[in-house]
Amino acid sequence: MSNLAIATQDLVRTYRTRKSAGNPSGAPVVALDGVTLDIPPGEFFGLLGPNGAGKTTFIKVLVTLLLPTSGSARVAGFDVVGQAQQVRERISMVSGGEHSGYGLLTVREQLWMFSQFYGMPTQTALARIDELLRVVGLYEERNRRVSALSSGMRQKMNMVRGLLPDPEILFLDEPTVGLDVEAARDVRAYIKEWIHATPGRTILLTTHYMHEAEELCDRVAIIHKGRIVACDTPAALRRRTAGGTYFVLTTEPLDGTAWVSQVPGVQRADARASDGRTELRLQLADDGVIAGVVKALADRERRIFSLQKIEPSLEDVFVQIVGRRLEEADEGGRA
């Protein structure tokens, strides 16, 4: 038996389609194209990709909603095809951008009902529901009907539903989609709080918000057209980016900049003049080299107005790997 929380091997999922203007041949659409991924217990793993990349399909296979076309997937050590019931006892899922919930029930009733699906004793369940509702700031709404909740409130309620059974593995499928900034921040804050409070739990988060993946995840995989095209920690992915970390230094106008390249450790220097100032973009062998540059400027009696260290973002990583910005890839996926 595997000790991994999630393990997939050459996972393929295709969808049959009818002939249409967009797909005149009626050829099957490949949503997952040989995905192999290992996620150990306790990891907060992010799956980053544009719309249509295969993120939701991947989660649907793992949570037993969808059968794979070929390949294998194990969750908590159990096969998602042949041992679906065992998988379901150990997982939970929260999806964003939807309005699920029995509108005729109150928040507390709805959550109690789901707790019963997981076999929780009623008293334990109600105590936990109240506790979680307090944490997400929904306690005052506990006796309101679900139909009367705003989108943000519903999403928080669904987050509570997902966490209620204290799952070994939690699947978060774009949990902050459609939420306003404040509600999204609350949801992220609570996810972080939960993972810290319950070490050993595994989270698989799909998102197309770069900052969300950077803020939350231990490791991130970039998925594009059903394939995992990169997988590492956010820091390691950033380091892979061509150009890597660089400094931007703004100073009084310089007559020439050839001398900057002579400073030991400076690998590349580009200068740009604007508003009567010179902006130097410096790529250095290591951070300590910047002291030599600053000293050289001081020797030339040039004042420094600003100094910034710029690290590449996951967005840069994505652009380098996929060749387009995420938003552009989204539009491509929708087209």
């Binding site: 949570v63 037993t64 909603l65 019931q85 379901r88 006892e89 997982i91 939970s92 899922m93 999806s95 939807e98 309005h99 699920s100 919930g101 029995y102 509108g103 789901f114 699906f117 997981y118 076999g119 539903r161």
Partner: peptide, 13 residues
């Protein structure tokens, strides 16, 4: 309508 089927389905019932 309620859009709950997927959550009902993936629970251990």
């Amino acid at each position: 309508h309620w859009k709950t089927l997927r959550y009902v389905y993936i629970s251990p019932i």
